[in-house]
Design a protein around this nucleic acid. Structure first.
Lengths: 244, 244
DNA sequence: GCATGTGAATAGATTCACAGCG
DNA sequence: CGCTGTGAATCTATTCACATGC
């Protein structure tokens, strides 16, 4: 799939799938058994979310149809996705909520808590740091980085804010697994380089910039403006746009 | 594609494509000429971003290969995508940066400024309100909504914060085009119902919940935990996870 | 000559429809 | 009987390879 010629510079990671919305640039060498289809991987977290809700409601068993409704997808999609995890349901009955949840968590590698560093402590970085949903789902923000001394001086958070130069040390000390890049676009590539140099190989990029990273680094991106522009397209093509 | 039987309740909008990352639930009736493939629609904003950069650098013409590098996709993908806009390049030369940018903007409906309302003025809502990137790309936050009187009392923003009950009026007054839902999951469906009732038909949902909306409403979602869990999957399947 | 634009080929994802099994 | 699990069919997207035209 990937031509064996070396990529030009910086090594643009292969965008694994396509598709409208975030995309994955994953460990690009598919020779390794990458068991699940990419589309399935992206949906497992949705099922997990629904299962957690069901669990909270004391529901013991769920059918593919109910799970599908709850996750906003098609029932045969649910069955196909879950079938990749092995035989995980009971015919005639449905899926056991608890055990399915565990199976998905194992599949996603959510068995240990993963350390997260937030790089860029502006508006968005602060909001991310304050986000309550991390702990509940197996992630913990353990370090903050910003290269602007003025930003570091404010330090309104329980966690100290470090300069980028300390990222390598932080990565070792806290076993950082994931970096959230919340810097301006202009700084994003330098930050990504530092992240890679620090040995962190999972990046969630909020900066509106394309990151060039080695092939063994996974990047997912979240770009607000891109999302809005996609919405704009559908808006424009609507029958009668009345209000907006 | 959509079975003609009426959906159960609330009408789950069809998730138009799949794919790992945000997905679209768009105006589901494809009978109308929805010219571009969904995957293309999702990439046009990326090209736009690259083109803006090139324009800033005073680059006049760009080849599909350079544009592809800059956007992080494949060159033939770029050519295929752009070919849907009509003949937009010059053989032997490349694409004119200015005119290509305009063409894409027109295609995405970015010719008029679109009014955005942020619903839920917690951590994330405030960060979104403070985000500088809106204006630069044709969107403007013109209203804020939060149903918690305590939150409204703080009002640290130039814009006043309204109760949800005023959304209908705000939608009319400001011709709101897009709603950003940044509430807790528990409130998200009620908010979505109010958004729909107010006549707004584009939603960007940050709440970790599936929204049920009528078929003519487009929803895109951004879920931080989902992104992290996807990263976790790839992390787990890596050869030798050293640091993290 | 060179890079676009495009039909054809391939790969991947979704949906269907039903066999299999509790 | 009911619901899972799955092969087959379909649909969509990506990539290739080359004809086309500046």
């Amino acid at each position: 799939m990937l031509k064996s010629t070396a990529p030009p510079s910086g090594c643009v990671p292969r965008t694994i799938g396509p598709l409208y919305g975030g995309d994955v640039s994953g460990p690009s060498d598919r020779s390794r058994v990458s068991r699940l289809p990419d589309a399935t991987i992206a949906r497992l977290p949705l099922y997990l979310r629904s299962l957690a809700q069901l669990q909270a409601d004391r529901t013991v068993v769920v059918s593919s149809e109910d799970l599908a409704d709850s996750a906003g997808v098609n029932a045969s999609q649910v069955r196909k996705d879950l079938s990749f995890l092995g035989p995980v349901g009971t015919r005639g009955l449905g899926y056991d909520v608890d055990s399915l949840r565990s199976k998905i968590e194992v599949e996603l590698g959510l068995t240990e808590e993963l350390g997260v560093v937030i790089i860029g402590y502006g508006n968005l970085g602060r909001a991310l740091a304050g986000y309550r949903g991390f702990g509940a789902r197996g992630f913990r923000v353990v370090a903050l980085v910003d290269d602007d001394p003025a930003v570091r001086a404010v330090a309104p958070d329980p966690l100290p804010i470090h300069p980028l130069s300390e990222l390598g040390r932080l990565a070792q000390e806290y076993a950082l697994a994931i970096a959230l890049v919340a810097t301006p676009a202009s700084a994003a590539q330098d930050v990504a380089d530092a992240v890679v140099a620090a040995g962190i190989r999972s990046i969630l990029n909020f900066a509106p910039a394309t990151l060039n990273v080695p092939a063994d680094v996974t990047v997912r991106k979240v770009d607000l403006a891109v999302e809005l522009q996609i919405l704009s397209y559908f808006r424009q093509r609507r029958p009668g746009a009345t209000v907006g």
